[in-house]
């Protein structure tokens, strides 16, 4: 049985001025699963990821057609509150980008913006988010120290905790491990696996072994098109498209 989709796109197209960067994308993202997007540089995978929380709106020359449904609602419908959308669809970037504040303040920032002022409630959210991001045991004694003093891997998990603090439904990860060493990468990958109990994860990665390890579904993109989408095992063991086969066996890209 196909799991219930939380996000689906229908004939999604995106242009950067005259450049047709996403071409007629039809895709369903399954709830409480990990979906990986792979493809060579410039194929549109990060652009597609940024569509899901309308981050491309911040770029002037971008034009979009087609539909993106989150929980069966069009995220481009008139009256959609982008702040609420980005609360539901959080994002973790390639390079850890903690605020130059304490560990506590980094995690408490989002809930505060969304109106939570009660100290006890904030404490609970901060602790739970740090626990869920598998960071609590490492920072519990220096919760008020600057986040910039953490290691790269810890900073990235802090960014994940910051995302979790506003209780999103979907977490977008744009190459979350590319700036990390193998041990920190392994911790993030383990974390991604546990996150799917409560969240849906969409991850863009250049590391195909990582996509194969962490994801349930994989989409291969090339020149703005979604060439093949399917269960990760099928994509990596027996892809149906020659382009996918050639890319994942390193013959191009």
């Amino acid at each position: 049985m196909t799991p219930e989709p939380i996000i689906s796109t229908h004939d999604l197209n995106l242009w950067y001025s005259d450049t047709h960067a996403l071409q007629s994308i039809f895709m369903k993202v399954s709830k409480n699963h990990v979906t990986a997007l792979i493809g060579p540089s410039g194929c549109g995978k990060s652009t597609l990821l940024r569509c899901f929380n309308r981050l491309n709106d911040l770029i002037d020359c971008v034009r979009i057609s087609g539909e993106i449904l989150l929980d069966n609602e069009n995220i481009h419908a008139a009256g959609t509150d982008v702040v609420t959308l980005r609360k539901k669809v959080g994002m973790v970037f390639q390079k850890p980008n903690p605020f130059p504040k304490s560990v506590y303040e980094n995690v408490a920032y989002g809930p505060r913006v969304h109106g939570i002022k009660n100290k006890v409630e904030l404490d609970t959210i901060v602790e739970q988010s740090l626990r869920d991001a598998a960071l609590w045991d490492e920072v519990r004694d220096r919760i008020n120290d600057s986040a910039l003093g953490l290691s790269g891997g810890q900073q990235q998990r802090l960014c994940i905790a910051r995302t979790l603090a506003v209780e999103p439904e979907v977490i977008l990860m744009d190459e979350p491990c590319s700036a990390l060493d193998p041990i920190a990468t392994a911790k993030i990958e383990k974390l991604i696996d546990t996150l799917t109990r409560d969240y849906t994860v969409i991850i863009v990665t250049h590391n195909m072994q990582q996509a194969a390890r962490v994801s349930d579904y994989t989409g291969f993109m090339y020149l703005g098109k979604l060439i093949e989408f399917g269960q990760t095992n099928q994509i990596f063991e027996n892809p149906q498209e020659d382009l996918t086969e050639n890319y994942i066996t390193g013959r191009f890209g």
């Binding site: 195909m208 072994q209 194969a212 990596f236 063991e237 027996n238 892809p239 996918t244 086969e245 994942i248 066996t249």
Partner: peptide
């Protein structure tokens, strides 16, 4: 090399 797809087969 952690081969995949046809290479792995």
């Amino acid at each position: 090399y952690q081969p995949m797809a046809k290479d792995m087969r």
